[in-house]
Design a protein around this nucleic acid. Sequence first.
DNA 1: ATGGTTGATGGTCAA
Length: 267
Amino acid sequence: MSDPLRLATWNVNSIRARTDRVIEFLRRSDVDVLAIQETKVRDDGFPVAAISDLGYQVAHHGLNQWNGVAVLSRVGLDDVQVGFPGMPGYGEPPATEARALSAVCGGVRVWSVYVPNGREIEHPHYQYKLAWLEALARYGTEALAADPALQMAFCGDYNIAPTDADVWSVDYYLDKTHTTPPERAAFQAVVDAGYADVVRPYTSEPRTFTYWDYQQLRFPKNRGMRIDFVLASAALAARVTSARIDREERKGKGASDHAPVIVEFGG
DNA sequence: ATGGTTGATGGTCAA
């Protein structure tokens, strides 16, 4: 009924600085669909030709040098949606940001989401982060109410470590964003809406992370966080056959501070 | 090792 699908999500921290790395990743990983976050470029600056040469269609949404999301697919790229219904903006008056984009690829609606960072607990950006996730959960609920058999995945950088096991040091984050109870509750609300973390069952070893700060030798010391996820609806989650984090991609000169997360779905 | 990272930008801000 469905074809097998290999899907990845990756915060690249600038598509222009990472074009060669992305191309090399596509070659080696052989993914059908790649959700990208933090392209940090307007649509007219995205390296579409270099990606097209590899056989991938590109949908990108970027308004300026911040944020920016894309979906790359070699199994079709239909019904592209920019943002989700009810997605909040930031500031006064609220300005829409380039933080969500989706397309139907190989029968699956794949979202690339870049959840607001939150900056500091007392910063307005923190409340924005919570409101943004609340709206995402609401959209997810409504989508499944309309079609319980929907195959949909929210892939991206959530800027939240859902459990204490997902950070290198609980103490370090006590007075910072990413591990506070309201953030974790906001993340859990998306899960509870019907979208499971399909990677964790395959990556349960201690200190398994997807992000390591560039500073303080965080990567060599494996002092990171697990903040990048593929959250899949039940009909899609039932098809998962394997998942992994491409930690090798974080190594060497010119790496993003995030590693790609890869999920394979059976037919 | 008295430092401390990267990217977009051309001021600093953001992560």
